[in-house]
Write a protein that binds this DNA or RNA. Structure first.
Lengths: 225, 225
DNA sequence: TGAAAATTGTCACAGATTGTAACATCAATC
DNA sequence: GATTGATGTTACAATCTGTGACAATTTTCA
């Protein structure tokens, strides 16, 4: 029902049956938000899944529950869900809340400090400016990155400490269903490393996690006012 | 009743009758959380047990009490319990609170704004930084660990004094349903020891518990701010 | 448009990491 | 102290990753 409704509304929906399905979808598709029913098959608990997702990302999550249980609601929100909707609900209401969550989420840091709207990312002295698509080294010189290199660095630097699979990087930096061998990412990472971990800055900012993918391990220093 | 319920929920439960049973279980099993009834047999006081556990660890504890007594509740929480549930309770509620406590407990300081809020782990002069995935020796030199070695050390160092079975380490450092002989862990531990217990630091930080698994015996010094 | 330049994809090989297994040690038990 | 079983260690094989060379593709610009 939800699937049909949201597809009619123009969304692209990945409907899955259980926790494993969710993990797969998160890996495979470029997911913007998760709607999660508390009562799942497969013996997995929806609350646990919320926590699991939260440990590695700030993916927006809306919990749907079979009943309006105060404890469930509170625990769910404490667990990190962004909203909680009890059945029965109106489809229109779900849509409204979804918009609300997405808005809050994307509206993340409008960051109007000093009358400026910078949302640059800083790490270990580096400065990454998504708007201008520029990378500036600690000593102030600009490092030229190609489009692909920049996209990968941007995605990863936004989430330090989070491990990205090659597939996921593929999805996030290119369109949804891009087909190419994963090793393309390896090559890009290699070129990227050569540029940002060059002689002067021997720190390893991108580490590889064997069998999984890559992590950005820079020291993000947000909100430089 | 609780045992059966939680086992149905997929938890592994060690049910014991008294304080001594609890101590044994804490030693023997890899305990994640303690549910403690205030009214115990064996003449031991539940409150005392809370304090006893608290003096040596930050093990999460939920107290169950036969009555909803404000004094009991306050004293219990002051003693260091993480939550307090009065009878009669719904099993679902206990589960929810348990989730909540576990989450709070595992919760990494969510992304520490202002670049502050390191959650590095220190032990015996060593410094383990999960975000940067770096291990720094007491004398300041960095020790290069592989992904697998780092994961094992991280899991164990987070819970000094806790015994991890090989299976559990397997689960915690790789996916859930990973299939490989347990001896893989032995090999990894061996390599890890060679790196962190090398000539300069003869202290044995990882001890083996025959028939069970391994314990991290470093002296954790938390949260140097 | 067409050539030059830049970027990306592909591949091969080197190197690193991990799984496996054999054997050496060690601990517990009788 | 001999036996039995568990753990430590190591070598080697299997797998995964890093990187350079070059081809294919896209972009730039005359």
């Amino acid at each position: 029902m939800l699937t049909r409704y949201f597809e009619n509304e123009g969304y692209q929906v990945s409907a899955v049956a259980d926790g494993q399905g969710m993990r797969d979808a998160l890996q495979r598709d470029a997911i913007d938000i998760v709607l999660l029913d508390l009562i799942l098959g497969g013996g997995e608990d929806g609350l646990m899944l919320v926590r699991e997702v939260r440990t590695s990302s700030d993916m927006p999550i809306i919990m749907l529950s079979g009943r309006d249980d105060v404890v469930d609601r509170i625990v769910g929100l404490e667990m990190g869900a962004d909203d909680y909707i009890a059945k029965p609900f109106h489809l229109r209401e779900v849509l409204a809340r979804l918009h609300s969550v997405l808005r809050r989420h994307h509206a993340q840091p409008p960051q109007a400090i000093d009358g400026e709207g910078e949302d640059v990312i800083r790490f270990n002295g580096w400065l990454l400016n998504p708007r201008e698509r520029r990378l500036v080294a600690p000593e102030g010189t600009e490092v030229a990155l190609t489009t692909g290199e920049f996209d990968i660095l941007l995605v990863m630097a936004k989430h330090p400490g989070r491990v990205f699979s090659r597939d996921r990087l593929m999805n996030l930096t290119r369109g949804r269903h891009y087909e190419a061998p994963d090793r393309v990412i390896d090559a890009q990472i290699s070129r990227l490393r050569k540029k940002i971990e060059a002689g002067k800055h021997p720190a390893s900012l991108i580490k590889s996690v064997r069998g999984v993918g890559y992590v950005f391990t820079g020291q993000a220093s947000e909100r430089a006012s």
